[in-house]
Design a protein around this nucleic acid. Sequence first.
DNA 1: ATTAGTTTGTTGTATGATACAATCATTTTT
DNA 2: AAAAATGATTGTATCATACAACAAACTAAT
Lengths: 141, 141
Amino acid sequence: MDEKTFDTIDREIGVFIRRIVLSEKRNDTLGRSTYILLGLLHEEGPASVKMLANRLQLDVSTVSRQAAGMEKKGFVHKLPNPEDGRSYFYQISERGKKDLLENRTRRLKRVRKVLEGWTDEESQVFGRLLQKYNKSVQERL
Amino acid sequence: MDEKTFDTIDREIGVFIRRIVLSEKRNDTLGRSTYILLGLLHEEGPASVKMLANRLQLDVSTVSRQAAGMEKKGFVHKLPNPEDGRSYFYQISERGKKDLLENRTRRLKRVRKVLEGWTDEESQVFGRLLQKYNKSVQERL
DNA sequence: ATTAGTTTGTTGTATGATACAATCATTTTT
DNA sequence: AAAAATGATTGTATCATACAACAAACTAAT
């Protein structure tokens, strides 16, 4: 296949990441890590830092600090794990849910705006291919 | 249009960024900022920190430090601007070119691997849509 | 031509995300 | 019971980033 396609993709990925990350920084209140972590706790229920770190492929220390910060800000509750005195479960709080939702809404609005003028077909294909790319990355990188 | 499409895209973008950034950290020697800056200098020739900052939508101080670091490592030369005693031009060095190329090659190899098994059509469409998304983001975000 | 204002770049300080190594407390294994 | 393993936190370090303060150099206004 044409080498140029790979090159285009590589370049556009670079631009993509830069733009999205900057835009998130400008527009979101939560910070992308917090957002992701909170989303996980919301959708999959309480979890320990270890579980979260595994799930997100991050170091436990990273998640530990992250979680501590979120607790301080009231986004999560830290509950002792009755089965194991060393570990805790972090559970999203009402406050956390509220902020998460607000952020999600704002993000979706942005996506909608970016996709204005695209055909339904294009949007759907883009979503599908992103998904496919992600799966491929996970499997082979 | 179906709200679900936007939601999928938003989520997949999150995963995408996380995965790619982590993979870059594991695999690349240059660091994504350095890589992008160096690529710019390579393709568009010498530039001042101001120009670079504008081009990349970053603060001048950020680029200033970045450039200083790259000079220290020998990736670029810092040349005084004869027209203006305040400013300099950063020019990619041979060493910089070499490292840039090595990194680019490694990245392309990764992209190729991820895209293994995709049809040519799919890869091309993905590249095209990424490009389109980026353009939209730039215009409206 | 001298002063006042503007621009370019650097540095100080701060934040967020990240990892590795050391450590503490607890649990499990032997 | 002692030794080994595990879960979490904390110390330290790096990278990318921004804003504010500043110095040097340039430009405009009087």
